[in-house]
Simulated scan of single mutants.
Amino acid sequence: ILKATNHFHPPISLGEGGFGLVYKGKLEGGQDIAVKRLSKESRQGLEELKNEVILISKLQHRNLVKLLGCCIQGDESMLIYQYLPNKSLDLILFDETKSRSLDWQKRFHIINGIARGLLYLHQDSPLRIIHRDLKASNILLDSEMNPKISDFGLARSFGGNETEAQTRRVVGTFGYMSPEYAVDGLFSVKSDVFSFGVLALEIVSGKKNRGFAHTDHRLNLLGHAWTLYQEGRLAELVDTFLNGEFEYAEVEKSIKVGLLCVQQNPEDRPKMSTVVWMLGKEGEIPEAKHPGFFTERQLVSGEAVASTNDVTITIPHPR
């Protein structure tokens, strides 16, 4: 690994998270790799890294990132993945220049691929996996823009007929967490469904849910999409960089499915098997109910928007 990464030389760093840096490398056989290396200064990450090894080593799906190997010994802890040249979805989707390369066909392909990957995690994999941190930066793209769900450090596996659990330490990302998880620490497959719904709306619009701004109101992206849905103006949600070049039936389907996934009540949200079916079929989509975290910000003039993405919430319990 030292030889493959030129002794972790910084110029080939692919990015950085709370755990440390991710490096690009090349094995002797010519295969490109990505190496996630836990920083020695990091006070977090080792448990998440071990969790990822345990879970992802048992998973195989074309829409999940592939783990090639790992090293947890002494001061070194690292994971070795397949290298994906287009990096993460957020770096393209939310960049005014790069997003122009994402035509509607590619966006709809990405939405469908993420849905199939989640269906595998929730239903078809050897373990029932709840990802708990599904977001644009955790969707990696290969050379053909095929999406790969990555970063299973916060994921949880369920056995038997388990469908829900509660945690006192909520760790995730603002803008993607479901209400029941952020407020009460309850997570289930429906928590991932909520995150998928946010992602679908972000992919259609090219806008982030968190920090979303509009000249006519102060709603977040979910609120904006819901308003357009109620007023029959769904086409207005589509990224303007597409210049009107999209298949309206697929756009309508994607937005409606996204809104079904972000409904306030977890029981109202569809399973991922239903999501995949609705995205792939022609016909009527059920009516959505009010979304969760439908918020309207009251910003003071000149107020800065917080830049941090990660949140840890401790939920106190009486003795």
Score class of each variant (00 low, 15 high):
residue 27 L to G: 04
residue 28 E to T: 06
residue 30 G to Y: 08
residue 30 G to A: 13
residue 30 G to D: 10
residue 30 G to K: 08
residue 31 Q to K: 14
residue 31 Q to V: 12
residue 32 D to M: 10
residue 34 A to Q: 04
residue 34 A to N: 05
residue 35 V to F: 08
residue 38 L to Q: 01
residue 38 L to P: 00
residue 38 L to I: 00
residue 40 K to I: 08
residue 43 R to F: 00
residue 44 Q to Y: 14
residue 47 E to K: 13
residue 47 E to G: 07
residue 47 E to W: 01
residue 50 K to P: 07
residue 50 K to V: 03
residue 50 K to Q: 15
residue 51 N to K: 08
residue 51 N to P: 13
residue 52 E to G: 00
residue 52 E to W: 00
residue 53 V to W: 01
residue 54 I to W: 01
residue 56 I to R: 01
residue 56 I to K: 01
residue 57 S to M: 03
residue 57 S to C: 08
residue 57 S to N: 03
residue 59 L to M: 12
residue 60 Q to D: 02
residue 61 H to V: 04
residue 63 N to H: 15
residue 63 N to Q: 10
residue 63 N to C: 10
residue 64 L to A: 14
residue 65 V to S: 05
residue 65 V to G: 08
residue 66 K to M: 03
residue 66 K to P: 02
residue 68 L to R: 10
residue 69 G to F: 02
residue 69 G to Q: 04
residue 70 C to L: 04
residue 70 C to W: 12
residue 73 Q to A: 07
residue 77 S to N: 13
residue 77 S to T: 11
residue 79 L to C: 13
residue 80 I to F: 15
residue 81 Y to V: 00
residue 81 Y to P: 01
residue 82 Q to D: 10
residue 83 Y to M: 00
residue 87 K to R: 15
residue 88 S to T: 02
residue 89 L to G: 05
residue 90 D to Q: 07
residue 90 D to Y: 05
residue 91 L to I: 10
residue 92 I to Y: 12
residue 92 I to L: 12
residue 93 L to H: 06
residue 93 L to R: 02
residue 94 F to L: 01
residue 94 F to H: 04
residue 96 E to C: 07
residue 98 K to W: 03
residue 99 S to Y: 03
residue 101 S to K: 12
residue 102 L to V: 04
residue 102 L to H: 06
residue 105 Q to S: 15
residue 106 K to E: 09
residue 107 R to E: 01
residue 108 F to L: 05
residue 110 I to N: 15
residue 111 I to H: 02
residue 111 I to P: 07
residue 111 I to K: 03
residue 111 I to W: 01
residue 113 G to L: 06
residue 116 R to S: 14
residue 117 G to F: 00
residue 118 L to D: 04
residue 119 L to F: 09
residue 122 H to C: 11
residue 123 Q to K: 14
residue 124 D to A: 11
residue 124 D to Y: 06
residue 124 D to E: 14
residue 124 D to F: 05
residue 125 S to Y: 03
residue 127 L to P: 10
residue 127 L to Q: 14
residue 134 L to R: 04
residue 136 A to K: 00
residue 136 A to S: 12
residue 137 S to R: 06
residue 138 N to V: 07
residue 138 N to D: 14
residue 139 I to R: 00
residue 140 L to S: 11
residue 140 L to T: 13
residue 142 D to R: 08
residue 142 D to E: 09
residue 147 P to E: 05
residue 147 P to F: 02
residue 148 K to P: 11
residue 150 S to T: 14
residue 151 D to V: 02
residue 152 F to M: 11
residue 152 F to L: 14
residue 153 G to Y: 01
residue 153 G to L: 02
residue 154 L to Q: 12
residue 154 L to V: 09
residue 155 A to T: 08
residue 155 A to E: 10
residue 156 R to V: 11
residue 157 S to G: 05
residue 159 G to D: 10
residue 161 N to A: 15
residue 161 N to G: 12
residue 162 E to K: 09
residue 163 T to L: 04
residue 163 T to D: 12
residue 166 Q to M: 13
residue 166 Q to D: 07
residue 169 R to I: 09
residue 169 R to V: 11
residue 169 R to E: 11
residue 169 R to D: 05
residue 169 R to S: 10
residue 170 V to Q: 09
residue 171 V to H: 12
residue 171 V to S: 14
residue 172 G to P: 09
residue 173 T to Y: 03
residue 174 F to E: 04
